[in-house]
C-alpha cells in the first residue's frame, strides 16, 4: 500500500511549489514535464532497453501541439493532448516495431538513428516546422479559458501522478515481471511463453506517450519547442535520469531523479564550467550506488 503514496506525494509537492512563488512554480512544471520523459526511459530500462532516441517522442508531443496551433489555430488543451498522445504513440509503435529486430547497443543505436532522422527533418524542413528556431507554443485553453500557470502546474502534477500510479501497478503486475524476465534472459522468457516482441511494442508505445506528454508540458512552460528536444544529447540526459530513477526504491523515483538532474543542471550554470559540475554529480551518484551495492 505504501507505493500508493507516490501519486499523493507528487501532488503534495506540486501544491507546495505553487505557494513557493513564480520561479518555483515554473521549475515545478518544467521538472514534472521532464520527469515524464524520464519515466519513458525508465520503463524501457526495465526491459534492459537503452533508448537513446526517447527525445524524439518528447519533441513530437510538443510539436504536435505547436503545429496544431500554427496551422489550425487551435490552442485547445484537449485537442493538443490528443495530438500529442497520437503522434508520440505512433512513434513509439514505429520504434518498438523496428526495435524488436535489434537488441543491446544495436537497439540504442537504432533508436538514436530514428530520433536523429526526426531531428534532421525538424531542422531542415523549416517552412513547415520552423527549422532550428522551432515553434511558438500557445497558452493552452480548456473550454476556451486559458489554464494559466496554476492550471499548467495542476496538469503537470496530475499527469506525473497518473504515470507514477501506472509505474506502481506495473511493478506488481504480470507485465512488470515479464519485463524483469526479458531484461535478465530474453530467450528463457520467451521459452516460458512470453511474446517478447509484443511486450516491447506495448511498452515502447507507453514510454513514448509518457515522453510525448512530457514534451508537451515543457513546451507549454517555455512557450516554445525546438529541434533540440529531439537531439540525442537530450535523450542521453533522459536515459541518465531513468538510470538514476532505477537506482531509487520509490515509484516516484522518476520525479525525484528529474528534480535532482534539473536542479544540478540549473545550479551548474552559475559556474564557468557547468559540464564539470553535472559530470561530477553523475560520478558521485555512480560511486554512491557502487558503495551501497558491494556485491
Amino acid at each position: 500500500m505504501r507505493g500508493w503514496l507516490s501519486p499523493i506525494a507528487i501532488i503534495t509537492a506540486a501544491t507546495a511549489a505553487y505557494f513557493g512563488g513564480p520561479f518555483l512554480r515554473f521549475a515545478a512544471v518544467y521538472i514534472l514535464g521532464w520527469s515524464l520523459a524520464v519515466f519513458g526511459a525508465w520503463l524501457l530500462l526495465r526491459y534492459g532497453l537503452v533508448n537513446f532516441g526517447i527525445g524524439a517522442s518528447y519533441a513530437l508531443g510538443a510539436y504536435a501541439a505547436g503545429l496544431m496551433y500554427r496551422y489550425l489555430h487551435t490552442a485547445d488543451l484537449a485537442v493538443h493532448l490528443l495530438a500529442a498522445v497520437g503522434a508520440a504513440g505512433a512513434w513509439g509503435a514505429l520504434n518498438g516495431a523496428v526495435g524488436i529486430k535489434t537488441r543491446g547497443i544495436y537497439y540504442s543505436l537504432l533508436s538514436l538513428s530514428l530520433s536523429m532522422v526526426l531531428y534532421g527533418v525538424l531542422v531542415k524542413f523549416y517552412t513547415v516546422t520552423g527549422g532550428s528556431d522551432g515553434l511558438y507554443m500557445p497558452d493552452p485553453r480548456l473550454l476556451g479559458v486559458r489554464i494559466g500557470t496554476a492550471g499548467l502546474l495542476a496538469l503537470a502534477a496530475l499527469l506525473a501522478a497518473a504515470w507514477a500510479a501506472l509505474g506502481e501497478v506495473f511493478g506488481r503486475s504480470y507485465a512488470g515481471h515479464v519485463a524483469a524476465g526479458i531484461k535478465i534472459n530474453e530467450l528463457r522468457t520467451s521459452a516460458l511463453g512470453a511474446d517478447v516482441g509484443r511486450h516491447i511494442l506495448i511498452s515502447s508505445v507507453l514510454a513514448s506517450i509518457a515522453a510525448g506528454l512530457g514534451g508537451l508540458i515543457v513546451g507549454y512552460s517555455t512557450s516554445h519547442v525546438s529541434p533540440d528536444f529531439a537531439y540525442w544529447v537530450t535523450s542521453g540526459k533522459m536515459v541518465v535520469g531513468g538510470l538514476i530513477a532505477s537506482f531509487l526504491p520509490w515509484t516516484w523515483g522518476f520525479v525525484a531523479s528529474a528534480a535532482l538532474y534539473q536542479a544540478v543542471e540549473l545550479y551548474s550554470l552559475q559556474f564557468a564550467y557547468p559540464e564539470l559540475v553535472v559530470g561530477g554529480l553523475l560520478l558521485a551518484i555512480l560511486a554512491a550506488w557502487r558503495l551501497y551495492y558491494r556485491r
Binding site: 504480470y174 507485465a175 515481471h177 522468457t189 516460458l192 512470453a194 509484443r198 511498452s203
Partner: peptide, 15 residues
Amino acid sequence: AIAVSALRGFSLRPV
C-alpha cells in the same frame, strides 16, 4: 512469478 507472468500477455493485473 516470471514464469507465471510469461503466460499472461501484457497484463497490468497483479501477479
